[in-house]
Design a binder for these strands. Structure first.
Lengths: 213, 213
DNA sequence: ACTTGTCAAGCAAGCAATTGCTTGGTAAAT
DNA sequence: ATTTACCAAGCAATTGCTTGCTTGACAAGT
């Protein structure tokens, strides 16, 4: 319920908006503080390795207080997770809406995905990728539907790539492999290192695409 | 300590051995039962989501008994993790030892990696990939060294691929991306589905390699 | 101006269950 | 008679969560 309040916000003037995470109505308030702290902690120590007291400490509360905002620890995980996938989906759709040619569109999609995964939104995306299996079946089904929607949209991009001769294989397995290479980057990316998300995205595109000149 | 007893076994007649996991001296005994059960449970519910009682139940023991074989729950995780990476490293080195041409060697490496990750050894490899960050720094350093060794060997394969003109980019980032696509497959692979690990490996090779005819 | 009522947001305290782990014993095998 | 492999029982700490209460902000009534 509460987690879905993010959907009914208006996308901010889609056309010339910056490519970074449109924020969900969850900025200035303490509820937002909690899910941000929880996101960070869940990524660092895992869901089950993080206690309510850890989260409360991180936002300067006592251990009972988060339950004023969330009815259970599980609901915090669910909120963090859906926040992650919703922002990613919105980002993707904003890129698609630009109507670029297949090749540019693909690189833009990959770069946007990586920017969110490796940038400031990092924690939410990570939790959704690596901790969502700990949700109970009903919640997981919701998250799974949203991921499926993401892949569907991404799949259309690959189809166009194949039609334009840039990609030989746009099958489901190929799609999973490409998305896997992207998602796994969260495991090894080093923000102090040489490559930024943009550069990594370019390298991935070069790796799987057949340039035509 | 105890975890390292696996290293001093002799590799079984390396040449014509089957391409599947050489087993570690841990088959018939209860200690092996524990790490196998722990591996399965850690993958299903995560390390912190699995209790000693879960593990004990799974092998028909009471909750105190695993501590006869391991001095702590942490040591069980460490053992499972090192088991995972050690077998993968041994597998990889056996493939290299065949001395195949670059292209065949690469596909063989990928297929072997996937066979272990998606096949019967699944749990160990998964735990090492997804739960090893929960080890404490000293243990994690050991696992990290072993992973680095794996990547090193894999890197040599990529270099040969590049030299033979099958691969444009053999940089560290490209290596991470390729290994990421492989490792992520554990997340979506469906053993009842259409593709087997071998087929997926072939598709990955086709995706990143430039065939010469 | 002053009381009164309401409500959001949190605290203090603690409860029942679960956790990793210990201890002392014991039956069988060697 | 020693060792191996385990059990029965339980302990101290931690866990998610609940309860009753306080506080500050704001509004309405008089």
């Amino acid at each position: 319920m509460a987690a879905l309040t993010m959907t009914d916000m208006t996308v901010p003037s889609a056309a010339d908006a910056p490519p970074v995470a449109p924020t969900s109505g969850e900025e200035g308030n303490r509820r937002g503080d909690i899910i941000r702290a929880a996101g960070r902690l869940f990524r660092q120590k895992g869901y089950n390795g993080t206690t309510i007291r850890d989260i409360a400490d991180a936002v300067g509360m006592r251990s009972g207080s988060p339950f004023y905002h969330f009815k259970s620890k599980h609901e915090i995980l669910f909120t963090v997770t859906t926040e992650g996938i919703e922002v990613m989906l919105r980002n993707l759709e904003m890129v698609i809406a630009k109507g670029q040619p297949a090749r540019e569109c693909f690189e833009d999609c990959v770069a946007t995905h990586m920017n969110y995964l490796l940038g400031p939104g990092r924690d939410f995306a990570w939790v959704m990728l690596y901790e969502s299996r700990l949700l109970d079946p009903a919640e997981r089904a919701i998250v799974h539907r949203m991921s499926a929607r993401y892949e569907e949209v991404f799949s259309a991009v690959l189809d166009r790539l194949q039609a334009s001769g840039h990609l030989h294989d746009a099958s489901a397995v190929a799609r999973k492999l490409i998305l896997g290479a992207i998602n796994w980057s969260a495991q090894w990316y080093d923000e102090t290192g040489a490559s930024d998300p943009q550069a990594i995205a370019r390298q991935l595109c070069a790796l799987v695409l057949h340039e035509k000149n």
